[in-house]
């Protein structure tokens, strides 16, 4: 049982502060009121899920190139965190949707493609579980992780390509973000906090996977 390291405390503190600022310090949205504050969790969750899956893609490609299992450990750790963040995105989105749209869930293109994203990466983890050979698992996962990432831009552009209930992008769009700059600053601070937490959890999860690999190697029959 190891203690939480300074980077861990720092990430936790940053997240706590940005959430408190988002809940109490910045003004509410003029059209939606207080419910809009859930954006400071919903949007960072979604962006960090994108980033996490990109890291899984990049680490997978690096593994295929270098055949070094360290990259595969990063890939699996990031995919797990990405899956949790996708779940958090869907959960916070449902709460926000119930309050503004009037419904927890609807088969809107953005919601549907996000649900597909969740299932794809759950499949990635299941695939890994089903392969005993360590290198074969890493190789197949790398290919799966590469193809799976194709869905990320589809999720992002779904609100522009198809008609739906979900509004189009506010920040990642051509031109000035359509959000007041004070609220934007809080949103970006929240993204930064989420990034710190992501990096810290990633680091810990990679260490855990390395320990697991070492144990697996030690248990392998000689010869």
């Amino acid at each position: 049982m190891s203690r939480i390291s300074p980077p861990g405390w720092l990430a936790g503190l940053a997240l706590t502060v940005t959430i408190l600022v988002g809940l109490f310090a910045v003004p509410a949205d003029a059209a939606q009121g207080d419910v809009q504050r859930i954006m400071y969790v919903h949007v960072p969750s979604a962006w960090l899920a994108y980033l996490a899956f990109f890291v899984t893609l990049a680490a997978g490609l690096l593994f295929l190139r270098r055949q070094d299992l360290r990259f595969d450990r990063v890939a699996v750790a990031s995919a797990e965190i990405g899956l949790v963040l996708t779940g958090l995105t869907i959960a916070t989105g449902a709460i926000w949707g119930k309050a503004t749209w009037g419904k927890w869930w609807d088969w809107d293109p953005r919601l549907t493609t996000t649900a597909i994203l969740f299932v794809i990466y759950a499949g990635y983890l299941l695939l890994r579980q089903s392969i005993v050979d360590r290198r074969r698992r890493a190789r197949l996962a790398a290919v799966f992780g590469t193809v799976a990432f194709l869905n990320v831009p589809i999720v992002h552009f779904s609100v522009l390509w198809w008609r739906g209930l979900h509004q189009p992008p506010t920040v990642i769009r051509p031109g000035d973000p359509t959000i007041d700059h004070l609220l934007l600053a809080e949103l970006l601070a929240s993204v930064a906090s989420f990034t710190l937490v992501y990096l810290w959890v990633l680091r810990r999860r990679v260490d855990l996977e390395a320990t697991r690999d070492a144990a697996e190697l030690a248990l392998e029959p000689a010869g």
Binding site: V26, P27, A28, D29, A30, A31, Q32, G33, Q36, M39, T100, W101, G102, K103, D106, L165, Q167, P168, P169, T170, T178, I179, D180, L182, L183
Partner: peptide, 21 residues
Amino acid sequence: DEVLVKHSEVYEPLRPGQTLP
């Protein structure tokens, strides 16, 4: 059977003294 309200992608802070429409 169902009336769902779309909200815009534009966010403006509630100014002091201002109330929701």
